[in-house]
Design a binder for these strands. Structure first.
Lengths: 404, 404
DNA sequence: ATCCAATTTGTGAAATTTCACAATCGATGG
DNA sequence: CCATCGATTGTGAAATTTCACAAATTGGAT
């Protein structure tokens, strides 16, 4: 067959195209979508490599392979221009020599075609052919999902705002779109510090889809936030969400040098009718992080907020109260009058859970000084600082005071 | 002058009546209102005793004297019937021999007349005379305050409900009624477990007025509650309120065998426009006490509530949240499955502020067992129990859970 | 200048906590 | 029936905390 016109026909399926490319380039072919999920692969292959095997078995490119391809500069190259890329052998992820080309419609990446080097090494003319083949694949990949996407997005907003009520109703609607419903899901919100344009949006969705820690059922955007419904994915059960939230900023930084994006997730619920709840919780996490003093690491999930889950209502009540806890006011007064540091000492003391040694070290004073100060504080505020409830009250009050 | 007709005339003032009685009975006379505040005393006295001197100097009967008179059964006797009572010398309060009679209008006690024994000892016929004199005093005492009282009461309710707004406006109105405005004041609410009838109401007002720890500017009632505006009185500054709240149930029990009355006070404010705030705080104290598990002593003042001041908003938010803290749920689950007591162990541990020894003693297990359990808990809930914020979160969550 | 009270630091003994290790007991599953 | 695991209790040594006491320092107040 002739290389110049082998592509001049209609392919009824992606498999047919893959087989055609494979035949022409004499090597196994794999076609993936923009999230590196397997779309098609050539069949009459004589040999293959470990990376391709696990991709086909798992119906997606394994996460560690994607990671490596980013770090090696291969995926960055595919993202930046339209030319096919030659890829040397990368032993530690079981990747043999191959050539890859992006399938793109203008700036949008629709997918990737991979050709493993077969009986002969791939040269310049193969690259030209692969580029043509990739152009051919656009039609196959561009099965205009956009109308459908918009419909889904609208429905997602109904779920987020609590408009769709009945569990069964939601399940019925979702089963039209998905093979399996999420058994556990949480709403994740990603908040960008910089303007969220289409390009950044696509990057974020890409990182999300390739994380392999969560499966996204819906995603949408709102101002500078991206909202999506995520299911923790096998083999991670509950922790899938947490792992994703942890990895996400790392990925964004490594791959796109973006550091301005804060993630936050609501609780994981087993019920689809709790999506609204989870969404509000995710927003609450972001709000708490915004108000947290800078020296504390941000929270990722609602579940780990602890007492901070009440921060909003407590602060609201505090604002109504003209004066706060009289104990703290008394301490401030004393410090003011006597040039002492009792307030900070108490703060530190409570912060380290009453550990005199740590507290004294943190404040650069002798242990006995710390001990003396705490005794002093006890006298002034007339409270026993070994009483757990008093300590709780004071620490809560101080922590809330420190929030912006 | 004849004893039989000495009283058959009009007395233009209480002093005149006091002098008349003094002359007839040949001893110094003191007239007090129902709260043992001095109304009048005879002047041409040759001798007197320490109790009378300090009563006249302080313009009220000292608290310790009132206390003693209750314990000695003298005031109880005056409260129970209309007959004058002979009182022996009570050395430790500087009280000489005297005779006393209640001034009453049916069941209401309006005041008391005291006659110190002078040059001769007081006999039966003196008692008869004193009883007549007391009847004469009714007119003087009964200067129908009721209309004025009602007006005050209405205004107090306006203050309590936040209707009267401006500080100056309030001060202006109050200066019509009182010589001096309260510089610091708090609203105190007394809540009765049993039906609050007039008799009980009067008893409570009596105890309040005779406590000498607070001065009451207004008082009113609402269902089974009595509400009043109290100023801590010299020489007690801020603590006056607390001392009153502490003494009140003791007094009620000692004097009237009443134990069903719970007191609660709002913050002490320097501004009259914060009366509404203080009232709401007082009600909050009572509400918290109602929800507190039985083994904890009730709170008296809003200032000492600590984190319980947020109990209402926290509970409200908790009720919205379908599931609570996942850590505690996990512990309960574990306990259920393994017949263990990890939850209670954690509870006890946090309750005693992380003191292993106390915790183990309270649960009747070995210290190492306790230590092991806590380590176990840390594993299950995936939280470091030396972290003050985790401990705070857990204890707060548990405490709120325990509230009714 | 001097005194006094509050604060800080040091010392050492007693109490408490922590930790590693081992033995016992009971339930569970093969 | 045995093996195993989790829970409990015990022992003892090392580390840490607590507490009493003393000495030095400081900043005012008289």
């Amino acid at each position: 067959m002739d290389k110049h016109n082998a592509l001049d026909r209609t392919f009824s399926s992606m498999e047919e195209l893959a087989d055609c490319i494979s035949e022409m380039m004499q090597g196994p072919v794999t076609v993936e979508d923009s999230s590196h999920r397997l779309l098609a692969y050539s069949t009459h292959d004589d040999h293959t490599d470990a990376a391709r095997v696990s991709t086909i078995i798992g119906r997606r490119v394994p996460e560690h392979v994607i990671n490596k391809l980013w770090k090696e500069g291969i995926l960055p190259a595919l993202h930046q221009n339209e030319e096919p890329v030659r890829i040397p052998e990368i032993h530690d992820i079981g990747l043999g020599r191959r050539m890859a080309a992006p399938v793109r419609n203008n700036k949008d990446i629709l997918g990737y075609i991979w050709v493993l080097e077969g009986s002969r090494s791939l040269e310049e003319q193969d690259a030209a052919f692969l580029k043509k083949a990739a152009a051919k694949a656009i039609v196959q990949l561009q099965t205009s999902h956009t109308a459908m996407q918009q419909h889904r997005r609208d429905y997602f907003w109904r779920l987020l705002t609590g408009d769709a009520a009945q569990e069964e109703e939601i399940a019925g609607q979702l089963s039209n779109w998905f093979n399996a419903l999420p058994s556990r899901s949480a709403v994740i919100v990603l908040e960008s510090g910089i303007t969220l344009d289409d390009s950044l949006y696509d990057k974020i969705i890409y990182v999300m889809n390739t994380s392999r820690k969560v499966k996204s059922y819906f995603h949408t955007r709102d101002q500078n936030r991206i909202v999506f419904l995520a299911e923790p994915v096998y083999p991670y059960s509950e922790e899938g969400i947490r792992l994703f939230l942890h990895d996400f900023p790392v990925m964004m930084k490594e791959r796109f040098q973006m550091e301005e994006i804060q993630p936050g997730a609501g609780s994981v619920y087993r019920s689809l009718s709790r999506i609204k709840q989870s969404y509000e919780e995710a927003l609450h996490v972001l709000e708490v992080n915004r108000q947290l003093p800078g020296d504390r690491p941000p929270f990722l999930q609602y579940e780990e907020l602890g007492f901070y889950r009440y921060a909003d209502v407590i602060k609201k009540k505090k604002n109504r109260d003209p004066e706060g806890d009289p104990s703290l006011a008394a301490l401030h007064e004393y410090d003011e009058a006597n040039q002492t540091e009792l307030f900070d000492s108490l703060r530190t003391f409570l912060h380290v859970d009453g550990n005199m040694k740590k507290a004294s070290e943190m404040m650069h004073v002798h242990v006995n000084t710390m001990s003396y100060r705490i005794r002093r504080v006890e006298n002034i505020i007339q409270k026993d600082l070994k009483n757990a409830y008093h300590k709780l009250s004071l620490l809560l009050e101080m922590t809330m005071e420190e929030m912006k």
